[in-house]
Design a protein around this nucleic acid. Structure first.
Lengths: 210, 210
DNA sequence: GCATTTTTTGACCGATTGGACAAACGTTAG
DNA sequence: CTAACGTTTGTCCAATCGGTCAAAAAATGC
């Protein structure tokens, strides 16, 4: 195994690459990979297409760079889930943090959803590697809580899936959520309503059986 | 308001249009609208591009036809949710039916998800109309159950969202679910495991408070 | 069988796409 | 100042895209 090249970067390169990735996040998350064009990204980043291609080898390169960074931030809340706190409180915090991410980083959520929806053609290794390892690890912790009678016995994998699904729904299906709630209830308050609902659902649903 | 033209169709037209829609469902659901090409659809339908365009005016036409049909089948389980049965049983059946649809019609789910993810540019009217109306109607029924003390008091809109999110997750994020569960647990049994988990979560979560 | 209508095809078109490239322009160290 | 290096741009290209069209082929009605 060879170490990754150090890749000396100038100040301008660092700044411009950052600018491009921010623009690409905006474009990719709203149109998907194939639906986005380099021109769109270049324009959003305020530069010409050839100029953008001076900083990245190509469209694919931008996308993979973006996805690699994304996964880290995206899995951060799950990483924080640990053994030392009270199980119910830990899970409640996890749900809250996940919902906050859906609220504050909807583009990241949609970018990820777009990729998975289409069969994860470009990030399958990360799913089978990093992500699976982390989930396997955390389900063990959850299983421990169940054995200790701290939370109801159930399938820890599907528990995690359901937390992912319910929270990310508010980012990925945002337009539908807003349309269904209507103008009066679809405002910013929808996230607090969602938080209250999900907290109740999961806390009651996971209460250990006497 | 003018009635839609009767549009006399020959036997061949009916058959071929069906063939094309089936092929288009396959292609659109895996690559999204912009990611799919007419050539791909034509090949999947076993005909040439000009031949396909003899039956549909264009790419957009195929997509909207597909979406219009889809929404009906897609909302069918929610339509069945009614007042006459036992509330808990009704909700349990709804969840089960929804999960069965994710299992049996994953392409339809992904097609829908793709469209919503990108801001529902082509089906917004259906969301704000048909879908919203139905949800408004059903939340009233659910609210009635809550007032009658049959299920726990909570937000009926977010309850429906969470059922949609958790069930459709198994279609939309299928590759991720399978990758995380691994080869041993990611087989066909995953849907039964999911059904058991979701049933427990929602039934316990919605149990009326004594 | 024959005329009419429906279906299928190959060739083609303009627009857009991802990307290459060399020349021009800026910046900076000596 | 100037040579070396980093950055930006205009122009170009081949491939692919959605869609057209006229003519050939097949099906249909009489």
């Amino acid at each position: 195994m060879e170490a990754v090249k150090p890749k000396r970067r100038t100040r301008i390169q660092i700044e411009k690459r950052e600018l491009i990735l921010e623009a690409a996040l905006e474009v990719f998350s709203t149109h998907g990979f194939r639906g986005s064009t380099i021109d769109q990204i270049a324009e959003a980043a305020g530069m010409s297409k050839p100029n953008l291609l001076y900083y990245f080898r190509g469209k694919e390169d931008i996308h993979t760079t973006l996805m690699q960074r994304l996964l880290d931030t995206w899995l951060a809340p799950l990483r924080e889930l640990d053994d030392i706190g009270d199980p119910m409180t830990e899970l409640r915090s996890y749900i809250r943090r996940k919902l906050e991410m859906a609220r504050d980083y909807p583009r990241e959520s949609r970018l990820f959803a777009n990729e998975i929806l289409q069969g994860a053609p470009r990030i399958m290794p990360m799913i089978e590697g990093e992500l699976k390892t982390l989930v396997d690890e955390k389900t063990q912790i959850i299983r421990g809580w169940m054995r200790a009678g701290k939370i109801a016995r159930t399938d820890p994998y599907h528990l995690i899936f359901s937390i992912w699904a319910t929270t990310q729904h508010y980012a990925d299906f945002d337009v539908q959520v807003r349309a269904v709630l209507g103008p009066d209830r679809g405002g910013e308050g929808r996230f607090e309503d969602a938080a209250r609902f999900l907290e109740q659902l999961f806390m009651e649903g996971l209460k250990p059986k006497g």
